[in-house]
C-alpha cells in the first residue's frame, strides 16, 4: 500500500544546526491496516507523516503508493489519494465558511471546481443527514461558520470531510490531542467507526498509549528515527498499556528525559 524505502531526512543541510533524523529508514503498511504510532517527542512520528503527505521533501530514498513512485509528487497531487486530520482542529476546516459550505467543498474533492453552484437543495438534505449521524447536534447549525464551533465539533467535521470522498490512506496526526478527554473519546470512537465502515488504511500518530493499544491492528513505537517496536495481530492483541509504558520509560531514561 504505502512503502517508505531507505528514507534519509536531514534538517538544515549545510548549517551548524544540521541534524539527521532518518537514515536508511524503511517502513511499509499493507492495505486495510490500522497502524498506531507512538513515541516520544522528536522521535520522527510527525515527520514520517509529513514525508508521506509531501509536506516535507526527503533527502534520499523513495516513497511508493500502491507501487507507484510518488517521491517527487507535490503535496496537493498526493492529497487526491491521501486524507489527513491534524492536531489543530482549525486546520481541517475553513473557519469563516459555514458547515454546509465546508462539506460541499469536501464532497467535490477529486472533481473540478468550476462555475456551477456549490450548494443546492438536494445536497443540503444529504449533508444534513450525514451530519446528523455524528450525533453532535450539528444539523441545527448548518449555516453557522465552522470557526464558532467547539474544537471537538470541528475535529469531527474535519474527520468527516477528509473521508467524504474515496481515499487510499488516512493520516491522523495526534487528532485527539487538543481535545478534552471525553470529546477525545467520542472522536476516537467516531474515527474507528468511519475507518471500519470505509475499510480505510490508517496511520495514526498518538500520545495516548491506551488508544494505541485499544484501537488499530498494528502498533509501532518510534525512537530517534527508528521503529523500535512493531506488533500486529495476536502479538498486539496481548499487549497492554503497561507493557508499552515500561518500554517507553526505559527509552526515555536512556535519552536522559
Amino acid at each position: 500500500m504505502i512503502e517508505l524505502r531507505s528514507i534519509d531526512k536531514i534538517f538544515n543541510i549545510g548549517t551548524a544546526n544540521e541534524s539527521q533524523l532518518f537514515s536508511d529508514f524503511s517502513f511499509s503498511v499493507k492495505r486495510g491496516e490500522f497502524v498506531s504510532v507512538v513515541g516520544s517527542n522528536g522521535s520522527g512520528k510527525t515527520t514520517m507523516l509529513n514525508i508521506i503527505s509531501g509536506t516535507l521533501p526527503v533527502s534520499g530514498g523513495e516513497i511508493l503508493l500502491d507501487g507507484c513512485d510518488i517521491t517527487n509528487q507535490p503535496e496537493h497531487v498526493r492529497s487526491r489519494r491521501i486524507g489527513r486530520v491534524f492536531q489543530d482542529p482549525s486546520v481541517g476546516t475553513v473557519p469563516s465558511m459555514t458547515i454546509i459550505e465546508n462539506l460541499s467543498l469536501a464532497e467535490n474533492k477529486g472533481k473540478p471546481y468550476l462555475l456551477d453552484f456549490a450548494v443546492n437543495r438536494r445536497k443540503r438534505a444529504m449533508f444534513c443527514d450525514t451530519v446528523e449521524q455524528l450525533g453532535l447536534g450539528l444539523e441545527d447549525k448548518m449555516d453557522i461558520p465552522v470557526g464558532l464551533l467547539s474544537g471537538g465539533q470541528r475535529q469531527a467535521l474535519s474527520l468527516l470531510m477528509s473521508t467524504m470522498t474515496p481515499i487510499d490512506l488516512l493520516l491522523l496526526d495526534e487528532h485527539t490531542a487538543a481535545l478534552d478527554p471525553r470529546t477525545a473519546e467520542t472522536i476516537m470512537q467516531l474515527t474507528n467507526q468511519i475507518v471500519r465502515e470505509k475499510q480505510l488504511t490508517v496511520i495514526m500518530v498518538t500520545h495516548n498509549l491506551r488508544y494505541a493499544v485499544e484501537y488499530g491492528s498494528r502498533l509501532i513505537m518510534m525512537d530517534k528515527g527508528k521503529v523500535v517496536i512493531d506488533k500486529s495481530g495476536e502479538d498486539k492483541a496481548h499487549t497492554t498499556v503497561d507493557d508499552i509504558l515500561s518500554i517507553f520509560n526505559s527509552i526515555s531514561i536512556e535519552c536522559g528525559n
Binding site: H76, V77, F86, G92, V94, K109
Partner: peptide, 9 residues
C-alpha cells in the same frame, strides 16, 4: 485556510 485547499487536491 490554504492547507485545506491543498488537502482537497
Amino acid at each position: 485556510n490554504e492547507k485545506l485547499v491543498i488537502s482537497l487536491g
